[in-house]
């Protein structure tokens, strides 16, 4: 009961300040309407609302950071916003950046983007009849989309060059795991394997960093917008491929390695056709093993945030115990039982 009341109070506080933030930018006659809470307890608080100005009405999305410890694996909201502006300009399908929160808004850190209608729920996307065509097109579309993203001049994303994940992706995971203070022999084995089998260095490109089923907003024709850019960094193109193909993100469709949608060959050939750059299956495998480590550490982070009291929820508690499921898939992959 008390949790419910505090969630209501939180909603009221955010909505009141959002009203002020909107009138500061659009004038006294601008108002907000049709407010819908998507989530208050996730990695980001997310509210949908209509910005109403005279007869004009536009659906917008408010996102506010909830996890801001120094060990956070997420880039700061101001960098996310800058990145959204960059990729939006470059023609990557993303929600249009509308305005960034400022200290005067008293809403902590975050931003407002345009609403894009569509579905993100993996089980609906992977099974519902209306997404049959989207499923068919997914591998080709994802390959083309990543080719376009990785083709952006990295100098334009230089503001991401010094983040831990850009400088040393494996080291960044280990530093976080040590910060959370948990011992995970399975992850250490994987890290050791990764250190002893490093691929040769490849050119740095702009990576989405969390390009997977669940973070793509889709319609019946396919991908409409790529969401959740808070893990973006610079690195090897294959890192994005490994993450997309990890077993954890196939949502039960384990025979369809590309996000639960399709086969690797279709995705790799679409990427190569659009970018002119080959995809190396062994290197994707290395990044999948890396991805399991990273996904496990992210789950350890969620339970750390839960236990530290920063933001509590049953879902974050479950993340802690679900770390073992990721470790299991990781070891089964290293044993060669899972592909």
């Amino acid at each position: 009961m008390s949790i419910q009341e505090s969630a209501d109070a939180l909603r009221e506080r955010i909505v009141a300040r959002l009203r002020v933030a909107v009138t500061r930018r659009y004038g006294e006659h601008a108002r907000i309407d049709n407010i819908e809470v998507a989530t208050l307890g996730g990695s980001n608080r997310t509210l949908l609302f209509d910005l109403v100005d005279g007869t004009a009405r536009r659906r917008l999305v408010f996102r506010q950071e909830t996890y801001s410890l120094p060990s956070s694996p997420f880039i700061a909201p101001n960098l996310q916003y800058r990145l959204l502006q960059l990729v939006h300009r470059e023609g990557i399908p993303v929600p249009e950046p509308v305005f960034e929160l400022e200290p005067a808004d008293e809403l902590e850190r975050g931003y407002v983007v345009g609403f894009v209608d569509g579905e993100t729920l993996p089980r609906r996307l992977l099974h519902a009849p209306e997404f049959a065509r989207a499923r068919e097109r997914f591998c080709a579309q994802a390959g083309e989309l990543l080719a376009r993203l990785h083709g952006i001049d990295v100098a334009a994303a230089g503001f991401l060059a010094d983040t831990p994940d850009s400088l040393d992706p494996l080291g960044a995971q280990l530093a976080r795991l040590d910060f959370y203070g948990e011992a995970h022999p399975a992850l250490e084995l994987a890290v050791r394997w990764l250190e002893r089998h490093r691929p040769s260095p490849s050119p740095r490109v702009l990576l989405h960093g969390d390009f997977r089923t669940g973070n793509m907003l889709m319609g019946p024709d396919g991908i409409r917008a790529v969401l959740d850019w808070e893990c973006a960094h610079l690195g090897a193109a294959h890192e994005d491929f490994g993450w997309l193909c990890m077993r954890s993100f196939r949502f039960g469709q384990v025979d369809r390695p590309v996000g639960g949608f399709g086969q690797r060959a279709a995705f790799y050939s679409a990427y190569t056709a659009a970018s002119g750059r080959p995809v190396d299956a062994d290197e994707v495998y290395w990044w999948e093993v890396f991805g399991f480590v990273r996904w496990a550490v992210l789950n350890v982070m969620q339970v750390h945030g839960h236990l530290s009291g920063e933001r509590r929820s049953p879902a974050f508690a479950a993340c802690g115990r679900n770390t073992s499921l990721i470790e299991y898939d990781l070891l089964m992959t290293l044993h060669g039982h899972y592909t």
């Binding site: 022999p185 399975a186 084995l189 115990r321 499921l325 470790e327 070891l331 089964m332 044993h335 039982h337």
Partner: peptide
């Protein structure tokens, strides 16, 4: 030897967290 030991440790964790997940 360690892969075997650690795998059985992880299997034990999954037996508690979500046994359906096991192969």
């Amino acid at each position: 030897e360690l892969m075997t030991l650690v795998t059985s440790h992880v299997v034990n964790k999954v037996r508690v967290s979500k046994p359906d997940h096991l192969h």
